[in-house]
Structures are given as C-alpha cells and as structure tokens.
C-alpha cells in the first residue's frame, strides 16, 4: 500500500512539474511596481487560470526604464530571452509597459499571431490605452486579461476576432448598402416597366430583312499579333496579422505606442 501511495505521489509530482514547466515565468512581472499587492495577486490568479484553460502563455511585464531601443524590441527580447511562450512555437502574448517612457507594446508569438491578428490587436489597443493614459494600470491589465480570454475563445472556435464585425465603418457600409441596393433595384425595375410603355423605337439593324442562308464567308483569318501578361500580387488570406522578426530570429506580431 505504501509503495502504491509513493508511486502515485511521485507520478503526480512529475505530472505537475511537467505542466508548470510550460509556464516557467511569472504571469505578472511588475518591476515598475504599478500594481498593489492585492491587484497583483488578483491579476496573476486570473492569468494563470487562462494559461491553463487555453494552454497559451499570457503575461504582463512592467519596468520603470526601457531596457531596449524601442518598446517593440524590448518586449520581443523579454519574451524570447525570458523564456516566455507555450510549446514548440512559443505560443503566447505579453503586455509590456514602461512607466518612465510612457510606452507600451503587446507582443504575440506562435499561435498568438493567429489569435491576435491586426484587427484583434487594434481592438485590445483601443480598450487598454484609455486606462493607461489615466495611469489606471490595474484596469488596463484587467481589461487586457479579459479581452485575451474573449479573443482566445473566438480563435479556439475557429474564427479569430475580425475587426469588420466591430468597426463603425463596417456598420455604416452594411446599413448604407441595405438602404441603397433596394432603391437601385426598385428604380431599375420601374424603369424597365417604363421602357415597356414605349415600343416605337428607331431600328438600328435590318436583321429581319436578311435572306435566310444568304451569308457566305469567303475569307476568315484570325491573325495572332502579340500577348501581354499582367502579374498582380495575391491578397494574403492568412491570419491577417502583420509580423516582424525579433533579434532572436523568431516571428512576432504586435502593436503598441505611447500613452
């Protein structure tokens, strides 16, 4: 019995080590001390729950002074050299905030590039930035975590966030077309009926007067002259994500700016 119990304990220890090994870094590294301890614990708990739920690395990294030349390269380097990312493709997303420079950047990697496409990152940006501007870091990070959950769920269901479903211009285009198309159709159908009201028109042709079988074709030559080939780049139908290569050679997506 003792042996069995020891074996089970060992097995569970190995299993839990393996699991946590996937997320060896802290969910929140608040070097700039932007969160209170209570807020820190709350955000950490939420992120860890999401990490487990999606097998996907979600992280927040703050620092007072920027370590690199830009928020993008700093965030990418922290992500790549700091051991972030899940699995072979280093799937994950990280929100980087530099409080002194008032710069931020969201970097994505692996599956994160697919789940957080350009439209998704814009959506995140749109919701996080106002909180950052107000120095409300807790709200910004909470919003970030909540939106990560939302967008990862959409990606999991096979349809990553698409901006056109949300953007005002998309609503305007759909509503505009819904108003204009019926009008054009009704107008053209009415005009067609109106045209039927007038049957007297000057005849351009004399087809009715052509003698049946009278046409004789003596010469029919089709001379090929030249060809012209036009090559146009195909629209990328992939994830809709703009990517760049970090100093480590990995491919990242991302978006950021100042606040």
């Amino acid at each position: 019995m003792k042996r069995v119990l020891t074996f089970v304990l060992l097995l569970s220890l190995v299993f839990s080590t393996l699991c946590f090994a996937q997320f060896e870094n802290r969910a929140v590294s608040d070097n700039a001390e932007l969160l209170t301890s209570l807020e820190y614990r709350d955000v950490t708990r939420k992120i860890e729950a999401l990490r487990e739920k999606y097998d996907f690395d979600i992280a927040v990294y703050t620092e007072y002074e920027m370590g690199g030349v830009s928020a993008q390269s700093t965030a990418d380097d922290i992500y790549d050299y700091g051991g972030y990312g899940y699995g072979e493709e280093y799937d994950g997303i990280m929100l980087y905030i530099c409080s002194e420079e008032r710069q931020y950047h969201i970097t994505t990697c692996g599956y994160g590039i697919y789940a957080f496409n350009d439209n998704g990152l814009e959506y995140l940006d749109m919701n996080i930035k106002p909180h950052l501007k107000n120095d409300d870091y807790y709200s910004a990070i909470t919003e970030y975590v909540q939106l990560c959950d939302e967008l990862l769920e959409m990606a999991k269901n096979g349809s990553p966030y698409n901006q056109k479903h949300r953007k005002v211009s998309h609503y305007i285009v759909i509503i505009g077309l819904a108003l204009v198309i019926p009008f054009i159709v009704a107008k053209s159908k009415t005009n067609k009926k109106l045209k039927a009201m007038k049957t007297a028109v000057i005849q351009k042709y004399a087809d009715n007067c052509m003698k049946d079988g009278s046409m004789r074709l003596d010469v029919s030559r089709d001379l090929f002259l030249y060809s012209n080939v036009v090559k146009t780049p195909r629209a990328k139908s992939g994830s809709g994500s703009t990517t760049h290569t970090s100093s480590s050679g990995r491919t990242h997506g991302g978006r950021g700016g100042s606040f």
């Binding site: 052509m210 009278s214 046409m215 004789r216 003596d218 010469v219 029919s220 030559r221 089709d222 001379l223």
Partner: peptide
C-alpha cells in the same frame, strides 16, 4: 491577354 486581328470577307443578301 492575346491580341488578334480578325479578317472576314464574304457576302450577305437583304
């Protein structure tokens, strides 16, 4: 796009 010149010669009665 292939460009051609077509030549047709014949007759027809009206």
């Amino acid at each position: 796009t292939d460009y051609f010149r077509l030549i047709r010669k014949g007759s027809v009665d009206f």
